[in-house]
Amino acid sequence: VTLFVALYDYEAITEDDLSFHKGEKFQILNSSEGDWWEARSLTTGETGYIPSNYVAPVD
């Protein structure tokens, strides 16, 4: 499982989006939707859509 880490803070715009803070880690559930990925936060356990350009793979 490839994990991703937030590079910036993000505040949800719609109820389907997931708010997060810089440094938060995610498991990507679906990355086939283009620039918005469905993800689960490993910090909160919540799922929602995140902007793919706000995250990077964890080394």
Rank of each mutant, 00 (worst) to 15 (best):
H21W: 08
F4G: 04
L18T: 02
A39Y: 02
E24R: 01
L18W: 03
A56L: 08
T2R: 10
W36K: 12
I28R: 04
D17N: 14
V1N: 15
Y10P: 00
G45N: 09
S32I: 12
E33Y: 12
N53M: 10
A39N: 00
T43Y: 09
D35E: 14
D17C: 09
P51D: 05
W36N: 06
L18E: 00
G45I: 01
P57E: 09
E38V: 13
E46N: 11
T2L: 12
G48F: 03
S41D: 04
L42Q: 08
S32C: 09
E15P: 12
A56G: 10
L3Q: 08
W37M: 06
S32G: 11
S52K: 15
E24N: 05
N30C: 07
S31F: 15
T43A: 11
V55I: 09
N30L: 06
K22A: 12
A6F: 01
N53D: 11
A39S: 03
E24S: 04
Q27A: 10
V58F: 12
I50C: 01
E15L: 12
E33D: 14
Y8G: 06
N30Q: 09
L29R: 04
E46S: 09
E33R: 12
R40P: 01
P57D: 04
P51L: 08
I50R: 00
T44D: 04
T14C: 10
E38G: 04
W37A: 03
S52Y: 08
V1R: 06
T44K: 03
T44W: 02
T44E: 02
G34F: 11
V1S: 14
D59H: 13
W37C: 04
F4I: 04
Q27H: 13
G23K: 02
L3D: 05
I28H: 01
A6V: 01
T47L: 07
E38H: 15
V5C: 05
T43P: 02
T47C: 09
D17Q: 14
N53V: 09
G48D: 00
S19C: 04
V5N: 02
F26I: 04
V5I: 12
S19I: 02
L29M: 09
N53T: 12
S52E: 04
V58I: 13
S32R: 09
D9P: 06
F4C: 07
K25H: 14
L7M: 09
L42W: 07
G34R: 12
Q27P: 00
Y54S: 11
F4V: 14
Y10C: 03
L3H: 10
N30M: 08
L18Q: 03
F26E: 00
V58R: 03
D35R: 09
E46Y: 11
L42M: 13
Y8I: 07
F4A: 09
S41G: 03
S31Y: 13
I13W: 08
T47F: 07
D59K: 10
D59F: 14
Y10I: 01
A12S: 11
D9T: 06
K22I: 09
V58P: 04
I28L: 06
I13T: 15
N53P: 06
G23D: 06
A6P: 00
E15T: 10
E15V: 13
I50M: 02
Y54C: 06
S41K: 13
R40F: 13
F4K: 02
H21G: 09
G45R: 04
W37D: 01
Y10W: 12
T44F: 02
P51C: 06
D9Y: 04
A6G: 04
I50W: 01
S19D: 04
E24Y: 05
Y10L: 03
A6W: 00
I28K: 04
A39D: 01
P57S: 07
N30E: 08
Q27F: 15
D16P: 05
G34W: 10
T47M: 09
L29I: 09
L29F: 07
W37S: 03
Y54K: 08
G23P: 00
E38I: 14
R40A: 07
A39P: 00
L3E: 08
S31G: 10
E38Q: 14
E33C: 09
G45Y: 07
E46M: 15
L7P: 00
W36L: 09
A56E: 10
D35P: 11
T47W: 09
Y49N: 09
K25L: 14
Y54F: 11
T47P: 02
F20I: 05
G45A: 04
Y49S: 06
A56M: 14
E46K: 15
F20E: 00
D16M: 15
F4N: 01
A56P: 01
P57F: 06
S19P: 06
Y10F: 12
D17Y: 15
G23W: 05
V58C: 08
Y54V: 05
D9E: 06
T44H: 04
T47I: 13
D16C: 10
A6K: 00
S19L: 02
P51G: 04
D59C: 08
W36I: 08
S32T: 12
E15F: 10
L18M: 13
Q27G: 03
L7Y: 03
S41Q: 05
E38C: 08
S31E: 08
L18Y: 04
V58A: 11
P57Q: 08
L7E: 03
E46L: 12
K25P: 05
T14Y: 15
S31R: 11
W36F: 11
S41I: 07
H21Q: 13
D59E: 13
E33Q: 14
A39Q: 01
D16E: 12
V5H: 05
E15C: 06
G48E: 00
D35F: 14
V58G: 05
I13P: 09
G34I: 11
E11K: 10
A12K: 08
Y10H: 06
E46Q: 14
Y10S: 02
F26K: 00
T44C: 03
L29C: 07
T14I: 06
E15W: 12
T14N: 15
P57A: 11
R40H: 08
A12G: 12
Y49G: 04
V1A: 14
T14E: 12
Y54M: 11
G48R: 02
V58Y: 15
I50K: 00
T2I: 14
D17M: 14
L3K: 05
K22H: 06
K22N: 04
G48Q: 02
F20H: 01
A56W: 09
S41C: 04
D16N: 15
Y54H: 09
L42F: 07
D9V: 03
T44I: 02
L7N: 03
Q27R: 08
H21F: 13
H21V: 14
D17P: 02
T43G: 07
G34S: 13
D59V: 14
D9S: 08
N53Y: 10
S31A: 15
I13K: 15
P57M: 10
N53L: 10
Y54Q: 05
G23Q: 03
S31D: 11
G23V: 01
V5Q: 07
G45Q: 07
L7F: 03
T43S: 11
G48T: 01
L3T: 09
I28M: 04
L3F: 10
E15G: 14
W37K: 03
D59T: 15
V55R: 00
V1L: 13
G23H: 05
R40M: 13
D16A: 14
Q27K: 08
R40G: 02
G45F: 08
L18V: 06
H21I: 10
L18I: 13
Q27C: 08
L3G: 03
I13M: 13
P51F: 06
P51T: 02
E15N: 12
A12R: 07
T14F: 14
S41E: 03
E11C: 09
P51R: 09
Y54N: 04
V55H: 01
A12V: 02
W36V: 07
V1Y: 15
A39C: 05
D17I: 12
V1Q: 12
K22T: 08
W36H: 08
R40Q: 11
Y54L: 13
H21C: 08
V58W: 13
A56K: 11
I13E: 11
T14G: 15
F4S: 03
P51W: 08
Y54W: 07
E24A: 05
Y49D: 02
L3W: 11
I50S: 00
L42V: 08
Y54A: 13
V55A: 04
L18A: 01
I13V: 14
Y10D: 00
D35S: 10
V5K: 04
T44V: 01
E38A: 07
E38Y: 15
K25R: 13
A39E: 00
F4E: 01
Y54P: 01
I50L: 07
G48H: 03
S32L: 12
V55C: 05
